[in-house]
Amino acid sequence: MRTLHARMRLLAWRRPRAARALQVLLLVLFWLACDRLAAALRLPLPGSVLALGLLLALLLAGAVPAASLRRGADWLLAEMLLFFIPAVMAVWRHLPLLRQEGGRILLVILLGTALVMASTALLVDRVFRWRARRAR
């Protein structure tokens, strides 16, 4: 594992793009394995969440160095928009529904989001200040 990591560091230093592609591939393979595992064991949670949990455990235990996956993970997270744009295009299928309820849906989302944001921020601020006062 250590030598593998050293090789990855060397590759990242000499050919950053190749290292990124390899890291993405590793993450895809890890996800695929966990997806199969979750299905085979009939776990109640999705394979991707199982994979996230396992990877986090490996990172925290120090078994997998974070530096050896950072580039690939950052790329996947940065390009996530591209991955869900096709799902959004399902609007074509739901056009009649949206024509009928679109305005009301928009209202629910706008009001709901304002409520969520305001309550979250005020709650966090209150807990933060309460803890800061107690610490003093």
Binding site: L27, A51, L52, G53, L55, L59, G72, A73, F83, W92
Partner: peptide, 25 residues
């Protein structure tokens, strides 16, 4: 539309796994 683009949607799985790194960071 979705016949070839569903490969992109599938990549949301590995992207979910990648969330482990910001949590760790």
């Amino acid at each position: 539309y979705i016949r070839d683009t569903h490969w992109l949607v599938l990549m949301l799985g590995p992207a979910t796994v990648a969330f482990a790194l910001p949590i760790h960071r």
